Simulated assay, not measured.
Amino acid sequence: MENQETKFGFTQFAETWNGRLAMLGFVIGVTTEILTGQGILSQLGIM
């Protein structure tokens, strides 16, 4: 019987995509702050 790796949970596949999306979100957040001159919390109306 073949050993098939699942695509759910804490797998290498999931962690790789989680890291990539986190880096993308961070870059988008910093870019938005630079372009608008406001922090993320100010944009959301929290501060």
Rank of each mutant, 00 (worst) to 15 (best):
M1V: 11
M1D: 05
M1A: 02
M1G: 13
E2L: 13
E2V: 13
E2N: 11
N3V: 12
N3L: 10
N3E: 12
Q4T: 09
Q4S: 12
Q4R: 15
E5H: 09
E5G: 08
T6G: 15
T6K: 15
K7R: 11
K7S: 11
F8L: 15
F8E: 15
G9W: 01
G9T: 02
G9Q: 00
G9R: 01
F10C: 01
F10T: 06
F10K: 07
F10P: 00
T11D: 02
T11K: 03
Q12L: 11
Q12H: 10
F13I: 04
A14V: 14
A14W: 01
A14T: 12
A14S: 13
E15L: 12
E15W: 02
T16I: 15
T16G: 01
T16H: 13
T16C: 10
W17D: 03
W17H: 14
W17S: 09
W17G: 01
N18T: 14
N18C: 04
N18V: 08
G19T: 02
G19N: 06
R20N: 10
R20D: 01
R20Q: 06
L21S: 00
A22R: 06
A22G: 07
A22M: 14
A22E: 12
A22D: 02
A22H: 03
M23K: 15
M23Q: 14
M23V: 10
L24E: 01
G25H: 02
G25D: 11
G25Y: 01
G25F: 03
F26E: 15
F26N: 15
V27H: 04
V27C: 03
V27M: 08
I28H: 10
I28D: 09
G29C: 10
G29H: 10
G29S: 14
G29L: 06
V30S: 09
V30E: 08
V30H: 02
T31I: 12
T31F: 03
T32K: 14
E33N: 06
E33T: 04
I34R: 06
I34V: 04
I34S: 05
I34N: 08
L35A: 12
T36C: 04
T36V: 03
T36H: 05
G37S: 07
G37H: 03
G37T: 03
Q38C: 13
Q38I: 07
Q38K: 15
Q38S: 07
G39Q: 04
G39F: 02
I40C: 09
L41W: 08
L41F: 13
S42N: 10
S42P: 00
Q43E: 10
L44M: 14
L44A: 14
G45D: 04
G45A: 03
G45R: 02
I46K: 07
I46H: 04
I46A: 05
M47P: 00
M47V: 12
M47K: 07
